[in-house]
């Protein structure tokens, strides 16, 4: 039975923990050519250099070969080929498809059409499960556990898919949430309902200063222009929060700052030098987690 990873909800709690454990193994030993002879397609219908490089490095470090394209402009897709036909064609050649596509639900559909496992590397504003797993990995590595932590999510909590997926995944581990966002970008009701049903506590604020000192993880996000339909709304909120080193005087010793990157103005450069900055290491962790996802879905771990 082929298994795909489209949404973080496709993984059980045990599967999440398993993948994180495998990632740790890959971090200790980065070169394990267990997929020698395999070919994996990285097909990116919209450009995302960061994610693509991370996935392609993961494939290479596992010893498999990569084929694919990094944006759809010069492919048969631009000539009007349907997603179904592209996926059917590609899945005849390869052992796995890693795909990114601007339309939401495209990866789920591809996984139903493909004869090989599909990994969703982002479908519009919907899901990006490898990001969620690397966030969990980073939390576990810095805190030594996933249970009973206080996570302060900051920034665009309305359109920011990373916060939504992280919230869903963390719900297995008895967390407490703080949602720091301006009125226009508050956490949507459906996610708060989800937490209510699971009896998970949360509080909301629009002040960045209010909960800096009582959280274990400060999860900062960028306000992404492309998610806004109204340019005026974007202008109003784009620079709403800016974290500086001087604000970190009384934070918990174990507190770590995460950010899915790239950042714009929401974290000052002077934060990089503090012991709380973890976002560059977090990005590096993406490599080990993606190696683990690929190895697990292909049945090698």
């Amino acid at each position: 039975m082929k298994k795909s990873l489209i949404s973080i909800r496709d993984f059980t709690k045990d599967e999440i923990l398993h993948v994180l454990e495998v990632a740790r193994e890959f971090e200790q030993n980065r070169v394990q050519k267990i997929l020698e002879g395999k070919v994996i397609a990285c097909i990116f219908f919209e450009p995302s250099t960061r994610t693509r490089l991370s996935f392609e490095t993961a494939v290479n470090r596992l010893g498999a070969k990569v084929i694919g394209f990094s944006d759809a402009t010069n492919t048969s897709v631009s000539k009007g080929e349907t997603l179904k036909d592209t996926i059917k064609m590609v899945s005849n050649y390869v052992d796995m498809i890693i795909m990114r596509h601007p339309l939401e639900g495209s990866s789920r559909y591809a996984s139903e059409v493909a004869s090989v496992p599909v990994v969703n590397a982002g479908d519009g504003a919907n899901q990006h499960p490898s990001q969620t797993l690397l966030d969990l990995y980073s939390i576990k590595q810095t805190q030594g556990r996933l249970e009973d932590l206080t996570i302060n999510m900051v920034g665009d909590l309305k359109y920011g898919r990373t916060t939504h997926s992280l919230l869903q995944a963390m719900s297995f581990f008895n967390p407490r949430f703080i949602f720091t966002a301006p009125e226009e970008l508050k956490m949507p009701v459906e996610y708060k309902k989800f937490l209510d049903e699971k009896h998970i506590g949360y509080s909301e604020t629009n002040s960045l200063e209010e909960h800096l000192d009582d959280c274990d993880i400060l999860y900062m996000t960028r306000v992404q222009q492309e998610r806004f339909t109204d340019p005026m709304e974007y202008e109003k909120v784009k620079d709403v929060y800016r974290l500086e080193a001087s604000m970190l005087g009384n934070v918990k010793q174990n507190m770590k700052i995460l950010h899915p990157l790239p950042r714009v103005n929401e974290i000052d450069q002077d934060v990089d030098e503090t012991p709380y900055a973890y976002y560059f290491k977090q990005a590096e962790n993406g490599l080990y987690v993606r190696m683990a996802i690929i190895a697990y879905l292909l049945g090698y771990r």
């Binding site: 349907t82 997603l83 179904k84 596509h101 601007p102 339309l103 939401e104 639900g105 495209s106 789920r108 559909y109 479908d123 519009g124 504003a125």
Partner: peptide
């Protein structure tokens, strides 16, 4: 959802 795949491809 205007960005849903079902509104753009024969799904």
């Amino acid at each position: 959802n205007p960005k849903c795949i079902t509104n753009h491809q024969p799904v």
